[in-house]
Nucleic acid binder design. Structure first.
Lengths: 199, 199
DNA sequence: CGTCTATTTGAATGTACTCAAAAGCGGTGG
DNA sequence: CCACCGCTTTTGAGTACATTCAAATAGACG
């Protein structure tokens, strides 16, 4: 049925990195939980603790927080086959400052931290898989820090669309702006400049 | 002798997080390597792969890179009892973009990645220790990203001296500036503004 | 079609940078 | 002990990048 198809999407995703036999696949599938959310729904809000790893099967999500001046800042955007989480809260067990929100109707697969720890014993390769994922989260965060410190907003925008064209088309402008660390007005200006430059 | 004292400094540091018996302590000490460097010496340069975890016993270091416009950007500053590394390169095994440089005459303790992996089997608690360290590296990177996106340079400077007064006094101004993501000239201006504000 | 939200436009402003020059500071050698 | 050299910090003027605020326009959805 439908849920099986969704579960297999995650299994395929695991298999891109680690090999899994049928028994292991069964162990994993037994621990998965499918969750459907509507546009604007929250998976996590400030004060809560993130207790799941979350995989986007269909749809798109974002992670953001609101600063003291009530400004939104987007830390992560995600679409199909991406993991989305506040790793800080998940790893430390402390309460989050983040909103994790659906950008459209979205189907996720969740694995609770407790179940994942059990799975690590049954399928040790999964532990490798998530260690790699967390590493690459660190790496992309570092790359973003470097990017933010090194180049101006126009270059950041160009790099962004070069790397994430599919993402740029699915999220509203003001969310992209809050990801790039600029105002929506200025992004609007940059876009005009960009379309003028390429034509 | 002297080296023993330095090794014990790291053991004490481990023991703040995990408990270790005498046998474990001996296993660890057997794998440590003490390294002394002079001011301006490099532990790592772009193109090299970071193959050690590095603990500062005495002295201070920084991690920085140079962007396309030949600007230096400092990612990490460290003093006694801090770990200093390009985790990206260490974890991924890929070549680094970073310089790791001594800010003064410095004594470090290094553990090679190969030795550390052996140690993880002899002293599994160490694996927990470093997992926690890598987590907190992720967390502080995320906090810095948030800080950079949320507040202006003056607030960042105030927060910096509030958290790292001891560091601020040991590094030259232009390095602090490159850590805060501003020019040395502008930091000079902010410092004047700050001393005027507190007096 | 009307309402609500998102985007665009423009003017005024502010934050931080560039460049150049002067001043400060630490070490070295005479 | 002083003079000099190189490096770091300060100062200031001019400029650029990005924000704020307000108003107009465009799009999406019931």
């Amino acid at each position: 049925m439908d849920n099986d198809k969704i579960n297999l999407q995650l299994i395929r995703h695991f298999k891109e990195i680690v090999s899994l036999n049928d028994k292991e696949v069964q162990s994993i599938i037994a621990k998965l939980e499918i969750k459907k959310v509507n546009r604007k729904d929250y998976l996590l809000q400030p004060g809560q603790i993130s207790r799941h790893m979350r995989f986007i099967a269909i749809g798109s999500m974002r992670v953001y927080y609101i600063d003291e001046k009530s400004q939104e800042h987007t830390l992560q955007l995600g679409i199909e086959n991406w993991w989305i989480n506040d790793l800080y809260s998940y790893l430390s067990g402390k309460s989050s400052r983040m909103f994790i929100q659906a950008n459209e109707q979205t189907i996720l697969i969740q694995i609770s931290k407790t179940n994942l720890e059990i799975l690590y014993r049954e399928v040790p390769k999964l532990s490798d898989f998530f260690r790699l994922k967390i590493q690459s989260a660190y790496v992309s965060l570092q790359e973003r820090t470097i990017e933010n410190m090194s180049v101006d907003a126009y270059s950041r925008y160009c790099d962004f669309i070069a790397h994430f064209r599919s993402i740029e088309q699915r999220f509203p402008q003001y969310i992209i702006a809050s990801y790039l660390g600029i105002t929506p007005e200025f992004l609007s200006f940059l876009r005009k400049k960009h379309t003028a430059a390429i034509s």
